[in-house]
């Protein structure tokens, strides 16, 4: 059975890109905003979460904090158009597995995910 990854980004092309890059190994579930991502993450089991930060309705960082309240161990990768230092403190306290600045190196990301959850 494939491991499940929750991809959350308000940009449709980014979601498509991540799905296309990862669906050969993982089962990908998409969410277009923080609110949907949060309800999915709280309801279903995921092995990893890929989360954008600047999103409508529920901000990515808020969604991460809420997920962390429920699940302390799930690896979370942040993908953002901003540099990591802007939200450094939250990133540190929320135990983030990786912070990737857009544009993303697909090969590097696949390697990081494999390192975190395997196949």
């Amino acid at each position: 059975m494939k491991k499940r990854i929750l991809v959350c980004d308000d940009e449709e092309p980014i979601r498509l890109l991540l799905t296309e890059s990862l669906h050969d190994i993982y089962d990908i579930v998409e969410a277009s905003n923080g609110k949907d991502a949060l309800s999915l993450a709280l309801k279903e089991h995921f092995d990893l979460v890929i989360m954008d930060i600047k999103m409508p309705q529920v901000h990515g960082l808020e969604a991460i904090e809420r997920i962390r309240e429920q699940n302390k161990r799930i690896p979370i990768i942040i993908i953002s158009a901003y540099r990591p230092m802007e939200d450094d403190i939250i990133v540190k306290t929320s135990n983030i597995a990786a912070f990737m600045t857009k544009p993303i190196d697909i090969t590097g990301m696949r390697a990081k995910i494999f390192e975190l959850i395997g196949e």
């Binding site: 092309p13 158009a81 901003y82 857009k102 544009p103 993303i104 190196d105 090969t107």
Partner: peptide, 21 residues
């Protein structure tokens, strides 16, 4: 500057990623 970073990096991510694929 901040806005450009966000607004341009998103389509740039798509362009870069899809060209890798």
């Amino acid at each position: 500057a901040s806005w450009v970073a966000h607004e341009i990096r998103n389509p740039l991510t798509a362009i870069d990623g899809f060209s890798q694929l």
